[in-house]
Amino acid sequence: MNTQNTNPTDEEIEGIGGDEDASWGDYPIDTVLIRNENRTVHDVLRRIEKGSFVMDPEFQRDFIWPEDKQSKLIESVLMRIPLPVFYLAEDAQGRMVVVDGLQRLSTFQRFVNNNLRLRLPDQAELHLKHFRDLSPKLQNRIEDCNLVLYVIDAKVPERARLDIFERVNSGVPLTRKR
């Protein structure tokens, strides 16, 4: 038995505990509110343009993806390869703060706004093309691509949001193991 555990009903959770995570003590782990939403690329880009998405929160790094990596993302969408989920945090005003997925969302924005020319030398029909150069069928495939958004509720404390950001960017699972 762990002698540091003063309450035998307390459950020890691997990776959570110690002084550095004291803020979790006031916020029970079972009450972190994250909902799942599905949106198209077109819908998300429209919301970004309206200012409903915060693309530059303090904790987020700048846009750093090189054009070849951006091109591979667009190629993946055109090939209908499912994308990883996006993490957003709702703020008090109802805006969506990008927690994880800035590079991908920025790539979509750049491409659809014709600010990115694809670098895909192995794909002759796509290489050096802007969005406007694609057939309507391929443009629709990009705009209709379904994105899975995990939205952290506005009621979740800032420390928990930052912890979630650290976890999704370091590969640490968000769910505890039993």
Rank of each mutant, 00 (worst) to 15 (best):
M1K: 09
T3D: 07
N5W: 10
N7I: 04
N7K: 09
D10Y: 08
E11L: 12
E12M: 12
I13E: 06
I13T: 09
G17Q: 08
G18I: 03
G18N: 04
D19C: 01
E20N: 06
E20W: 11
W24M: 08
G25C: 03
G25F: 01
G25L: 05
D26C: 04
P28R: 06
P28S: 10
I29M: 15
D30Q: 14
R35P: 00
N36Y: 06
N36L: 12
N36G: 11
N36E: 07
E37G: 01
R39I: 04
T40A: 02
T40G: 09
D43C: 03
D43K: 13
V44H: 06
L45G: 03
G51K: 11
V54H: 05
V54G: 02
M55F: 05
M55E: 08
E58P: 08
R61P: 08
R61G: 05
D62E: 14
F63K: 02
F63E: 06
F63R: 01
F63N: 02
W65I: 07
D68R: 14
Q70M: 14
M79G: 01
I81M: 13
I81D: 09
P82K: 03
L83M: 11
Y87M: 04
L88R: 00
D91A: 01
D91W: 07
D91T: 01
A92M: 11
R95W: 11
R95C: 05
M96H: 08
V98I: 15
Q103W: 12
R104N: 10
S106A: 15
R110V: 03
V112W: 01
N114K: 03
R119H: 05
R119P: 00
L120S: 07
E125W: 04
E125A: 07
L126H: 05
F131M: 10
R132C: 13
P136Y: 00
P136F: 02
N140R: 13
N140I: 00
C145H: 10
C145K: 02
V148C: 14
V148Q: 11
Y150C: 14
Y150H: 15
D153V: 01
A154F: 12
K155G: 01
E158V: 14
R159V: 04
A160F: 00
L162M: 06
D163K: 01
I164Q: 02
I164G: 04
R167I: 00
R167F: 00
V168Y: 03
V172S: 15
K177A: 15
